[in-house]
Every structure is written in structure tokens, then in C-alpha cells.
Write a protein that binds this DNA or RNA. Structure first.
Lengths: 218, 218
DNA sequence: GACGGATTGGACAATTGTGTCCAAAATATT
DNA sequence: AATATTTTGGACACAATTGTCCAATCCGTC
């Protein structure tokens, strides 16, 4: 039996067998699309990586355009779910705000921003957004459209409780995310795989600067 | 006489007319590569956009790989030059640090970060970096490798003069750039063309937060 | 106006990719 | 064990692309 390239989620064993191949295809397609872009990705390459015959891809997912759409939809779901799972741990009533916000930030980095799904999405949307406008709309809605307001709402709550001093929560949310992601993005851009061990430091750096800017002045 | 990809940017006017077409080709190629990626870009599309016959591209620039390399080298030069031109206006001994740093930030946004050249580079390096490792190295050296340390040095200078309180200038530089670019990046990602009129506001937002975090405490 | 290098457009072979068809084989269902 | 469904791999037509060749043409210079 062939194995899939799935470094990701769930109990495949309980699904109908067709779904296994389907998942293998989607994972392989995500990899190849990410590496080669839409134009550069060939169905053959995807089939080979998925350990599946090319025909099976056409049977299950139709043509290349549709395959691409399904992959994006799938990854959008996964990525969004991961983000909101972490968001549930936001420290709305912290004892020690620096410590707890740092911990939360580290989780966000690990589970959401670092996450291969989310990175793939951002890249693909940037590269291929013009080619698939509806897709782009969907991503916009589920990505920035929901994540930033959600963070902003949590920050506003902290401000309302007197933990922070924030005029514009939406702006603060964007700045918080920017501070958090900067080192990760830098590493990504210079092609460096960020070691797990540095993530806590990144979270601490971002949180410290953020709190210095938004902590209440005595 | 064939010319190699060695020489790029100099006073074009004194050159034979062939260099005009060469520039047209490079600009068109940059556009098409940016839109379609390396794999998706066809020489024909580039030729059509440049208003030039396909053969001329092969005459002047050889095959697709070399064309791509020359384009990246060209854009790297332009982008780097633009950045350092703005950097020369950094307020090393400001009277009113908030005002002057805001102005500088606005210039940086307009001339360097907003700049189509730089955006194209980042995108292409992210997408095609794996395919052309030497290119990637060059970009790394001239991009992040020089820009961030340069900003860090200016910030350290401000700190040394007592305008700021900075433990880690390199970190502060990354955070400054992150704060500066966040809204622009957000707009880019949701496919919104940032209006010129909002850039000053972005610069002000970033600068205010940065100074709140790094201004000396009384 | 004649020369020479650059440019053009069209034809070309080779390669690669898409999407379909189909019969044989593997796998699941009953 | 018999049957239904999926999967496979190979063949195929069709289109797009790369890179080359070449004769006709343009255009600036002498």
C-alpha cells in the first residue's frame, strides 16, 4: 500500500477508501502548487507525489482548475480552524499580562502563523489571486476578514478592563500581528527554517514591544 | 556583438538603440514573470508585451533561464538603489523626532516598500527561490542582508544620542519595518490599491507605536 | 543612396502538458 | 464466491511552449 505525503491531520482509517486517495491527492496538490505555482504544476507531478494514477485525479476532482479550487477551499478550512482554536486561549483576564500574552503569542506562532497550511494559502493567494477571483474573495472573507477583527475584539476587551491603553483596536491588532510575525517572515524570506526553540523568544520580543507601546502609562 | 548579462544599469541614452528594446524586454518580462510565475510565463507573452519579436529576445538575452536571471539582477539593483537613496534622509539628529521619523517613514513607504520593483522581487524570490539558488543568495545579500543592518545602525545611532532606548538594534529594526509595512501588506493581500493619501497616516501610526515602545522612559 | 547590423515573422522539430478513452487489474460490497 | 466499483497504465488527439533557422525587411550611418 502506498503512503500519502500527509504530515497533517486526522484519522483517515475510518473514512471510505476513496477519501484516502482523495486526501493524498489534495495534500500532494497543495505541495506541488506551492512549489511550482498554478501554471508550473503538472497533473502528472501531483499524481506521482500522491502515489496515484493521473486518471484517478480526473475521476475524483475533475480538471485542473477545479482541483485547485478544492485544494484552496480545503486548506482555508484547516487554517481557519487552527487559528480560532488558538484564539480561544486568549488571556481575557490575565493575572500577569506579559507572561500570559507571551504564551498566547507563542501558541499563535506555532499553531497558526508557522502552520504550513496558512503559509501555503498566503503564498498561493498572492500568486494566483488574479486568476481565480472568487477564490480570492473567499480567502479574504475567512482570512484577514475574520482573523484581524477577532484579535481586535480581544485587545479591546483587555483595554476595556484596564490592562491596555488602546485608541484604535483594529490598528493595534494589525500591529500586534505584524510584530509577532516579523521574525518568522524574515526567516522565511531568507529561506531559513525557524528552529522551534526560537519561537518562544520571538513571542517574548513581540509581546514586550507591544506592551511597552500599549500598556497604560502611570 | 553579443553582450553578456554582465552589464546592466548605466546611462542608457548613450547606448545603441538596441538597448531600448532590451529595456522594453526586461520591463515586460518583469511584469509577466510577476503575474504568471516562471513556469507560467511564456516567451511569446513577454515578446508581445514588449512589442518585440520573440527572436529578438533570444538574440539579446539567450534562453528563458538567463532572461529571468538578468531581470532579477536588474530589479535588485533598482530596488536597492531606491532604498538607500531614502535611507540617506534618515533623521540622525532630529529636533522633533516624532515628526521627522514620521516623514522619513512616509518616504520609505512611498519610495521603497510600495515600490513595484521591490514588491516584485519579494514575490518572485519567494515563489522561484528554490529554482534558482544562486539568485536567491544574491537577493538575500542585497535585500535583507543590507537593508536591515542599515536601519539597525541608524536606530542604534539615535539610541546612542539618547533619542531612543534600544537594547537590541537589530530587533528594533525588524520591528520598525514590520510596523511600517503592516497596513501596506494587508492592503496588498486583500487586493486593495493603497491610496497615496493614506500613506502618511500609515507612517504616523507606525512611528507613534514605535516611539511609544522605544522612547526613553522618564 | 548603399552598406551592415539589428529586427521581424514565419516555419520548424522536440518536448511537455491537458484531458479523454478503454480494457485489464485491484479492491470493496454483498 | 459473485458482483459492483475504483484504480490503473497506456494510448491518444490536441494545444502550448521552447529554442533554432532563415529570408525578408527595417533603420541608422557613412
Amino acid at each position: 500500500m502506498k503512503n500519502s505525503s500527509a504530515e497533517l491531520s486526522r484519522d483517515y482509517d475510518t473514512w471510505p477508501p476513496a477519501q484516502n486517495k482523495r486526501q493524498a491527492i489534495l495534500n500532494a496538490a497543495a505541495d506541488v502548487f506551492a512549489q511550482e505555482g498554478f501554471g508550473g504544476a503538472s497533473i502528472d507531478a501531483i499524481a506521482a507525489r500522491a502515489g496515484v494514477s493521473r486518471q484517478t485525479i480526473y475521476n475524483q476532482l475533475g480538471d485542473k482548475d477545479n482541483l485547485f479550487k478544492v485544494v484552496v477551499a480545503e486548506i482555508t478550512d484547516r487554517s481557519s480552524a487552527g487559528f480560532f482554536r488558538v484564539l480561544d486561549t486568549f488571556p481575557v483576564a490575565p493575572q500577569d499580562i506579559e507572561t500570559e500574552l507571551t504564551q498566547f503569542s507563542a501558541q499563535l506562532l506555532r499553531k497558526a502563523i508557522c502552520d504550513p497550511n496558512g503559509r501555503w494559502l498566503r503564498k498561493v493567494v498572492e500568486t494566483e489571486g488574479a486568476r481565480f477571483p472568487e477564490l480570492f474573495e473567499t480567502w479574504k472573507e475567512y482570512g484577514p476578514g475574520k482573523k484581524y477583527p477577532a484579535i481586535a475584539a480581544r485587545l479591546a476587551q483587555l483595554a476595556h478592563s484596564g490592562y491596555l491603553q488602546i485608541d484604535d483596536p483594529a490598528l493595534a491588532a494589525r500591529q500586534y500581528m505584524a510584530l509577532l510575525a516579523t521574525d518568522l517572515r524574515y526567516d522565511q524570506q531568507i529561506g531559513r527554517q525557524t528552529p522551534e526553540s526560537e519561537i518562544d523568544q520571538m513571542a517574548a520580543n513581540a509581546t514586550r514591544t507591544f506592551l511597552r507601546a500599549f500598556a497604560p502609562r502611570r
